[in-house]
């Protein structure tokens, strides 16, 4: 898989402060098309805040983020149009409980992409088939297991044809036996060439599916490397300590 694709995200000196606390401390990096970037780090390191900054769910206090060449941190930019191209999957799924699975998936395509209901539903059904949940199309989120909900959340984001999907600890709220089904959907996506940025604690997944692993600690990227180098020959002492604790 090529990691020399065009640059999707260009992050330059990104800072985020909550009051006096600097959560992101001058982060600069790039994310290219086709990459699967896995972000790991201790809790409170700022890794989730970094991910959520990429679609401006957290507004940076300083620095810039360019997405597909457009500086989306510029206040005059209409962020909504760019968010359509940046999918997001949350730890707690955040499906819409008052809507059926099919409605969860077709709401945004119908209202924002102006698809007809029939078009949107046909496409949604196709995606549901891919994750083996087509019989749940008319169920409500409350009737699904955690793993099923997260698979729906993933295909809901796919309905908008995003150029990249951000995953914020997608398996952390799941019972252990359901983690596998979600990771396998994510692996399939990676194989199909989807650009993904993933905050996770699943180190095996990071090693096998990631094209680059990033260690975030104290609001900075302390180390980033290919999975092999990252796990087999970590250089940063904090990363060595972190890996020794979790592996």
């Amino acid at each position: 898989m090529s990691v020399n694709g065009e640059i999707l995200f260009e992050i330059d000196n990104l800072c985020k402060a909550f009051g006096d606390m600097l959560v992101l401390d001058h982060i600069s990096t790039q994310i290219r098309k086709g990459e699967v970037v896995v972000i790991v780090g201790p809790s409170g390191s700022g890794k989730s805040t970094f991910l959520r900054s990429l679609n401006l769910l957290e507004e940076p206090t300083d620095g810039t983020i360019s997405f597909e060449g457009m500086n989306i941190t510029d206040p005059s930019v209409n962020i909504n149009t760019y968010r359509q191209k940046i999918g997001m999957v949350f730890q707690h799924f955040n499906l819409f409980p008052h809507k059926t699975i099919l409605e969860n998936m077709t709401l945004a395509p119908i209202k924002l992409l102006k698809l007809s209901k029939a078009e949107a539903e046909a496409e949604a059904m196709e995606l549901l088939k891919r994750v083996g949940l087509e019989e749940k199309a008319h169920a409500y989120p409350a009737q699904l297991s955690g793993g099923q909900k997260q698979r729906i959340a993933i295909v809901r984001s796919l309905c908008m044809h995003p150029d990249v999907i951000l995953f914020d600890e997608p398996t952390s709220a799941l019972d252990p036996e359901m983690v596998g089904e979600v990771l396998s959907v994510m692996s399939d996506l990676a194989r199909d060439g989807m650009t993904m940025v993933i905050v996770t604690h699943e180190m095996n997944f990071a090693r096998e599916v990631g094209t680059r692993v990033m260690f975030v600690d104290e609001g900075q990227i302390k180390e980033e490397n290919t999975p092999k180098e990252f796990f087999d020959a970590p250089k940063n002492p904090r990363l060595q300590e972190f890996l020794s604790k979790i592996l």
């Binding site: 909504n80 955040n94 945004a108």
Partner: peptide, 15 residues
């Protein structure tokens, strides 16, 4: 309503 609902809506591109 959980703030995740607003975030999910905004992340899909809704205002």
């Amino acid at each position: 309503i959980d703030k995740g609902q607003m975030e999910a809506g905004r992340s899909l591109g809704f205002g």
